[in-house]
C-alpha cells in the first residue's frame, strides 16, 4: 500500500478541518473495508483522517422515540447493547451477523453507511426503519441518503456523526449469507411502524439497497408471511454474479421477507 499522511483529530470540527486541508484525504473509521482497499491500491489517498479519538462519535443512547448510535460505535457494541436489544432487537441481531467477530470488533456503523456497499447489512436497517443520518453539517433522511453503488448524499468533507433510529412496532432482518465473505447474497429488513410497513433489500440491487414497494404494499394490507410469499419480484434491476443469478435473487426476496415477517418482534 502507498504511504499517506496520518491525522488523528480529537473533535469533529478538527476532523472536518483535516479533511479540507489536504488534496485527497479519506476518513478511516474502523478500517475494515478501507484497509483491504488501500492494500489492493484500489484507493491511494494522500492522507487518512482517523476518527477513533473523537469521543463525541461513540456510544448508544435512548433518545425521543428511539435510539441514537454514534457513528464510531463498532458492530459488536451495537450487538451487545441492552438499549438496542430493548428497543430494536432486529438491529442488534443484524449487527451481530456482520462479517466475523474480529471485523465486528473494529467495523463501525458510520463506516458501513458512508461506504454504502451494495451487499452491506446496515443500509437495509437504516432504510427500512426510516432512520435519520446526522452529519457534521445536517440531518439526512434515509430515503435521501443512499444514492447508488458506493454513493451517498454525503458531500466532500462531511462526516457522519450519529444515526437516529425510531422504534418500530416490530422488525426483523433475514440474511442469506454468501458463505465465503459473510456479506448478504440477499438481505431483507422488514419494519412495521405506525406509518406503515417498509421493506429494504440489500445484496440484490444493481444500484445498492432499495425499498421493495410491492412487498410493502402487500404487507401493509396483510402483515403475514403468506402475503409476502404471494408477491413476485422482477429480476430486471437485480445483480447477477457467480454466486447467483438475478432470477435467484428475485426469488429469495419474498422468501426472506416472509421469514422476516414471521420472525418480527
Amino acid at each position: 500500500m502507498n504511504n499517506f499522511g496520518y491525522h488523528r483529530p480529537a473533535s469533529v470540527a478538527d476532523a472536518v478541518k483535516a479533511l479540507g486541508g489536504s488534496g485527497d484525504a479519506r476518513i478511516v473509521a474502523g478500517g475494515q473495508t478501507l484497509l483491504p482497499t488501500l492494500r489492493a491500491r484500489l484507493a491511494t489517498p494522500s492522507d487518512l483522517v482517523d476518527l477513533r479519538a473523537i469521543a463525541e462519535l461513540k456510544g448508544i443512547k435512548a433518545e425521543g422515540d428511539g435510539i441514537t448510535i454514534g457513528a464510531m460505535t463498532p458492530h459488536a457494541e451495537v450487538a451487545a447493547s441492552d438499549v438496542v436489544k430493548g428497543a430494536i432487537p432486529a438491529l442488534a441481531y443484524l449487527a451481530d451477523h456482520i462479517g466475523d467477530r474480529q471485523v465486528r470488533t473494529l467495523g463501525t456503523i458510520g463506516g458501513s453507511l458512508a461506504n454504502n456497499d451494495p451487499a452491506a447489512c446496515y443500509p437495509s436497517a437504516v432504510l427500512a426503519l426510516g432512520a435519520t443520518i446526522r452529519t457534521s453539517k445536517r440531518e439526512i433522511k434515509a430515503d435521501d441518503f443512499f444514492q447508488g453503488l458506493f454513493t451517498t448524499a454525503l458531500e466532500d468533507g462531511e462526516i457522519i456523526t450519529a444515526v437516529h433510529f425510531p422504534k418500530p412496532e416490530k422488525a426483523a432482518y433475514e440474511k442469506f449469507v454468501q458463505p465465503a465473505s459473510r456479506f448478504a447474497l440477499v438481505g431483507v429488513f422488514v419494519a412495521k411502524a405506525r406509518e406503515g410497513v417498509r421493506v429494504a433489500v440489500t445484496g440484490a440491487g444493481q444500484e445498492g439497497v432499495f425499498r421493495a414497494r410491492e412487498l410493502e404494499q402487500a404487507l401493509s394490507a396483510n402483515f403475514s408471511p403468506d402475503a409476502a410469499k404471494g408477491v413476485k419480484v422482477a429480476a430486471g434491476n437485480l445483480i447477477s454474479d457467480l454466486h447467483g443469478t438475478a432470477e435467484y435473487r428475485a426469488h429469495l426476496i419474498p422468501v426472506l421477507t416472509a421469514r422476516a415477517v414471521a420472525a418480527a418482534k
Binding site: Y6, G31, L35, L48, D50, R52, Q102, V103, T105
Partner: peptide
C-alpha cells in the same frame, strides 16, 4: 494474524500500527 487489542480479538493485518 489475530491478536488482542484492548482485550478484544482483531485482525492485525487489517489495522494500522498507528490505530
Amino acid at each position: 494474524c489475530t491478536v488482542h487489542v484492548g482485550g478484544k480479538a482483531v485482525k492485525s493485518c487489517n489495522m494500522l500500527a498507528v490505530q
